[in-house]
């Protein structure tokens, strides 16, 4: 049985194409390539680095926020292959070959994404810290066609805690943002 076990490595490169044999990487730094907001980034991370910390500390994309680091608040929400996830509970090395969208990738230049514009207009935030995650969850829920009413929006947005208590305005922003996205 152990004949198929590859040699252990302390460092290595994780290619985006399927490898010829599964290689064991780490615990030292691993060279990986991540596609974030349409750009390819080469970076060197230990396997234990979360996607969230890779984005913030390595790529300096600090729009994605760390609120709890435990999957309990949603401040770290990003889109991976268009689905909203909590980037604190996944590893950067697990996302080679994925399409990652962070809040920085939503606007085109100075032109706000319609959902961003709706959040500004409806005052769908106060301190703004949970806002990148709220906006990305809202975009995902609209794109996935889950806009079946206010209750559905409230349910679908429940993975993003807003401690300032802006939910009433977030609801209005999501409704309006969905119209603008249509």
């Amino acid at each position: 049985m152990d004949s198929a076990i590859p040699e252990l490595a302390t460092a290595g490169t994780l290619p985006s194409a399927a490898p010829a044999a599964a290689s064991i990487l780490g615990p030292g730094e691993v060279q990986i390539e991540l596609e974030v907001n349409g750009e390819r980034h080469e970076l060197s991370v230990e396997p234990r680095v979360t996607l969230l910390d890779a984005l913030r500390e390595r790529l300096k994309l600090t729009g994605t926020k760390k609120g709890c680091d435990q999957g309990t608040c949603g401040a770290c929400t990003v889109l991976v292959n268009d689905r909203a996830i909590d980037s604190c509970l996944t590893l950067a090395v697990m996302h080679v070959g994925d399409r990652i969208t962070t809040i920085e990738g939503l606007a085109s230049g100075e032109q706000l994404h319609p959902m961003q514009a709706a959040f500004v207009e409806h005052d769908g935030f106060q301190c703004g810290y949970c806002t990148p995650g709220q906006v990305l969850s809202a975009v995902a829920l609209v794109r996935e066609g889950r806009m079946t009413g206010d209750d559905a929006i409230r349910e679908q947005m429940s993975g993003n805690i807003c401690r300032c208590g802006a939910y009433e305005n977030i609801l209005a922003a999501v409704r309006d943002g969905a119209r603008r996205m249509a």
């Binding site: 994309l61 600090t62 729009g63 994605t64 962070t102 809040i103 920085e104 939503l106 606007a107 706000l112 961003q116 514009a117 959040f119 500004v120 207009e121 005052d123 935030f125 703004g128 806002t131 990148p132 906006v135």
Partner: peptide
């Protein structure tokens, strides 16, 4: 609208 709104919704 909040003047800091665009910065907050874009992660800036």
């Amino acid at each position: 609208d909040r003047l800091d709104g665009p910065a907050k919704v874009t992660g800036r």
